[in-house]
Write a protein that binds this DNA or RNA. Structure first.
Ligand SMILES: [Zn+2]
Ligand SMILES: [Zn+2]
Ligand SMILES: [Zn+2]
Ligand SMILES: [Zn+2]
Length: 576
DNA sequence: CTGGGGAAGGGGCCC
DNA sequence: AGGGCCCCTTCCCCA
């Protein structure tokens, strides 16, 4: 998803679809990202000017008679309270565009003034005497970093604050229960993806919230329901956030895929916790939850990050520091995770943020000395260089095949074993590659197959076991000669345009590939495997015949006859 | 469709 | 802490 989104971002006016190849191709036509570090400051400054002059102000805050014209977008960016307020009102007639007034008598005018000043200048200026009011205001409005700073100055621990509200805040307002479910579902879906499972856990859900137990814990552990959460909120207390708030950035990024697949990458990473966390944050600062933190491990309050993200792009580490202060010196592993100020995505791993940032800027600092192609990452360049050097570091221990990439070898090895580890739960068709399975499941071919799936005798069913296609003997499987990258070195497709090998179109594809692959082998090695090669081709013929079977049900890979019965159960969990 | 290759990105580990 | 190096997943595209 990222790719698409980024393409969209970088070339707002162009058709994203074709971008891939075009932009990627070697030429120097690659996208160029020019960072403007001062932009954010200038932007803020101009916004502040507008505020002073009342220009474009669409929201007026009042406190005890004092009036403060502001901008909704800014307030929403800086304040959790307003974020929720407007998120909730979105779509509702009033909230959309009307000039509105928000009465905030619960925040002292001076404090409100200071907070606004902060919002528009990133600097908090207040007499120490007013500190407490500001703290209060910051808490009410959900301006976490200011609250943290104030507490820090006041020498006040977050615990105290936390306890004050914890009873009610621990869980979201009841009104939200539905939404909670909704989120939970999303999370669960995601958690099914093995890759993301970890992420989900790390994501740092509100502490009352478990991805695996959607609506769990809270009721019992927190008898006093939610409504309390907002007890302290200003008069204009916003209603529960609407679903839209779940994907504010989706729209913003204009990435259709993000919406289609809310579970992917940053989207969910960014959005889900965002909302969830905000919920829990609104009243009680995160740092209070020490116990749970240990569980979240290194990811601690990812949600916090999210929450600040929009207004305070900063490294998680920074935030972690702030939070730790607020938390009264809680030991927080502020280490690895960092948040991208641009896309709000959390980047794990120390030193990985710059790398990620290059995906936004388009910067390609690494250039191939041989052909001039540039890369955003040095490790990509390194791999690219193998094309020039002919190096193929990954060698199959069973045959002479050698590969550029490790995953190619891996893939190749699965060919030796005939393993097709990725099986469609519906039709049980097995794939050697996960993405192919995914593609299969998205399409409808799968369902068609289901209806006419054969029913065979005894279930040889090896449940759980990985699919193994017709276990071809090691030497026999011709496919082993066309692993993902044997060809890369030579003629493959690189921009380098090595000598491509051309074969008569009449020849079966696999055979061609085999030949190609063979051609990649060192001559002497080739000499030592002649029969092997031939035998492979022979076998191929046989396999092809088998594959003719309509519906592919007789494909060797599927011959485990396990079909039937369990399919029914599985299709329940099959939802998208 | 399906299989396969190229490429982009993210995360882990280690120095 | 930053970065090299490597592994892995996902997408896109092509045949
Ligand atoms: Zn980013
Ligand atoms: Zn090169
Ligand atoms: Zn091999
Ligand atoms: Zn299927």
């Amino acid at each position: 998803m990222d790719t698409t989104r980024q393409r969209l971002l970088r070339l707002p006016g162009t058709v994203p679809i074709k971008m891939g190849k075009v932009a990627m191709s070697p030429g120097e036509d690659g996208l160029i990202g020019i960072p403007f570090p001062e932009h954010s400051n200038e932007l803020l400054s101009h916004l502040n000017d507008q505020r002073r002059t009342g220009l474009l102000c669409d929201l007026t805050l009042t406190s005890h008679g004092a009036r403060y014209p502001t901008h909704r977008s800014v307030m929403a960016a800086v304040s959790l309270y307003f974020r929720r307020l407007f998120g909730a009102e979105e779509g509702g007639g009033e909230g959309g565009g009307g000039f509105s007034v928000c009465q905030l008598d619960c925040v002292a005018p001076d404090a409100l003034d200071a907070l606004l000043e902060f919002a528009y200048t990133a600097t908090l200026t207040i007499p120490s005497s007013g500190m407490r009011d500001v703290l209060r205001g910051a808490q009410l409005l959900g301006i976490q970093c200011v609250a943290d700073a104030c507490r820090d100055i006041l020498g006040e621990t977050a615990e105290a604050e936390g306890q004050e509200v914890s009873a009610g805040e621990q869980r979201p307002p009841q009104a939200t229960s539905e939404r909670t479910v909704e989120i939970a579902n999303v999370v669960e879906k995601i958690s099914r993806r093995k890759t993301d499972r970890k992420k989900v856990k790390k994501v740092g859900l509100p502490h009352n919230f478990s991805p695996l137990n959607p609506l769990p814990a809270s009721p019992a552990s927190h008898p006093s329901p939610a409504s309390d959460s907002f007890r302290s909120l200003p008069p204009t207390q916003p209603p529960s956030p609407e679903p839209e708030e779940l994907h504010p950035k989706l729209g913003q990024n204009g990435d259709p895929r993000a919406i289609r697949e809310p579970g992917r990458g940053a989207t969910l990473n960014g959005e889900f916790p965002h909302w969830a966390q905000e919920r829990s944050l609104i009243a009680h600062p995160p740092p209070t939850q020490n116990d749970k933190l240990s569980e979240d491990d290194d990811m601690e309050g990812l949600g916090d990050d999210m929450m600040r993200s929009s207004s305070f792009p900063s490294s998680v580490a920074d935030r972690g520091a702030a939070t730790s202060v607020a938390g009264g010196g809680r030991k927080r592993k502020s280490q690895t995770p960092q948040q991208c100020p641009v896309c709000q995505k959390i980047i794990h791993g120390a030193g990985k943020l710059p790398r990620h940032m290059r995906t936004h800027t388009g910067e390609k600092p690494f250039q191939c000395s041989a052909c001039g192609v540039r890369f955003t990452r040095n490790d990509k360049l390194k791999i690219h260089m193998r094309k020039h050097t002919g190096e193929r570091p990954y060698t199959c221990s069973h045959c002479p095949a050698r590969f550029l990439h490790s995953y190619d070898l891996k893939n190749h090895l699965s060919l030796h074993s005939g393993a097709r580890p990725f099986e469609c739960p519906l039709c049980h068709k097995a794939f050697a590659r996960e993405d192919h399975l995914q593609r299969h499941r998205k399409g409808h071919s799968c369902l068609e197959l289901r209806t006419r799936r054969p029913r065979r005798g005894p279930e040889l069913g090896e449940d759980g076991g990985e699919k193994e296609g017709s276990p071809l003997s090691l030497q026999a499987h011709p496919s082993m000669f066309h692993p993902r990258s044997v060809l890369e070195g030579g003629g493959g497709s690189g921009s380098i345009g090595g000598p491509s090998l051309i074969f008569p179109s009449g020849i079966d594809r696999e055979r061609s590939l085999a030949l190609q692959a063979l051609a990649q082998l060192a001559p002497q090695r080739l000499a030592s495997y002649p029969e092997l090669f031939l035998r492979g081709l022979e076998m191929q013929g046989g396999r092809d015949l088998e594959r003719e079977d309509p519906g592919g049900t007789r494909s060797p890979a599927l011959q485990h006859d396990r079909w039937a019965d369990e399919v029914e159960d599985e299709e329940i969990e099959e939802g998208e």
